[in-house]
Design a protein around this nucleic acid. Sequence first.
RNA 1: CGGAGAGUAGUGUAACGGCCAACAUUCCCGCUUUGGGAGCGGGCGACUCCGGGUUCGAAUCCCGGCUCUCCGACCA
Length: 418
Amino acid sequence: MRQSELFTKTRKEAPKDEVAKNAKLLIRAGFVHKEMAGVYSYLPLGLRVLKKINNIIRREMDAIGGQELFLTALQDKSVWEKTNRWDDSVVDNWFKTKLKNGSELGLGFTHEEPLTKLMKEHISSFRDLPAYPYQIQTKFRNEIRAKSGIMRGREFLMKDLYSFSKDENEHNSFYEKAKGAYGKIFASVGLGDMTYITFASGGSFSKYSHEFQTICEAGEDIIFVSEEKKIAVNKEVYDDKTLEDLGLKKEELKEEKAIEVGNIFSLGTRFSEAFNLDYTDENGEKNPVVMGSYGIGPGRLMGAIVEIFSDEKGIVWPESVAPFGVHLLRLGGDSEVMSQADGVYADLQNAGMEVLYDDREGASAGEKFADSDLIGIPWRVVASAKTAAAGKLELKNRKTGEVKMADKKELLEEIANY
RNA sequence: CGGAGAGUAGUGUAACGGCCAACAUUCCCGCUUUGGGAGCGGGCGACUCCGGGUUCGAAUCCCGGCUCUCCGACCA
């Protein structure tokens, strides 16, 4: 895409009411717009990143049998009354509204209830199980205090998968698969090295749930990490008994701040029993379906990536989620430079690469460099009088800072082989 | 929900209770310029968050509201 046609602009300064690094950089670079506290819109560059993250998540969910659907945000009060989760004294972060006729509605903060009810229409025999529906959808939570930029909103995107299994065994085996899939997702977006499976409180149906915690100073959680065993314990369950359960010793654990980028829960039969979601087994006996839920916040993940992969000049996107693969900068408008730049733009695109082409007439060289660093595309290619005369182009890696001159062929190889 | 702070052009800042609310940047026009946010000239843009009050006079002081941020509690 030609940058002269991109409607968003970069800014030198972030709004003063933003403190979180992720929001400052994403706003300055034109990825997001803050509508109000805890409510952010995604602009074209931001949406490109979000879509890449979502697609990585989809790939891994589909790989373990997930089937994508899309549930409603508007929620029927009566469904939530079945599990006693409608009342504000039980769930205090509901957004509620009313129909014209006065009926109360809620804006979904999660989807166990409506989905369990929906699945009653599709599950009646052991032959119908297991089932793994998931969605990537907006959730609404009336948080008392929004903070941490896009990492903690009142309206945010969430991938939520729910597992419906015949029994504990089947559930546990899927639960382990989901754990593996989550590991792949976080590795794919570049956070593998600093993300730990973390034991956290399990609610009423299992001793522990598992969170995926990414170590980061901007995190809101405190975890105790065993680097050797690649696991961690959330502070909320950190006590002698837990350590004994997990076979961990205090000495091997290190306290860290972390961002919860995902979590997986065993739900047991709490929801299936509330909705009478059961199936008939091979012997003609009825059994309640065993459930689990598995969440990831793509927006929060994007925020975490920015928190971790950035420097004083801007964002440094991992290639897998970068809005574009290559940022092509044209310095000056001589006909030689113009034809060199236009030529590489076409070549890169023909090679299947996503290219942001800074063809802006008015912007100075310095401005283009500064914008390029801020936006953080992994590869920067410069076409200028210098490169046109040399018959080569300059290639720079945003992460390593490494610069080299290369002709078109070498350029394509270098980028493809990285 | 407890505590603290802040609201002035799109953005970042300034202005003793007293001249036309200033500066930078963004934006527009012209010229010049193209390897690290370039230069010169001209121009647009603010009922100083809202509502009251004190005062000869309020961006400035007082009261109420709204919004934002930070710390804490809570949470994907």
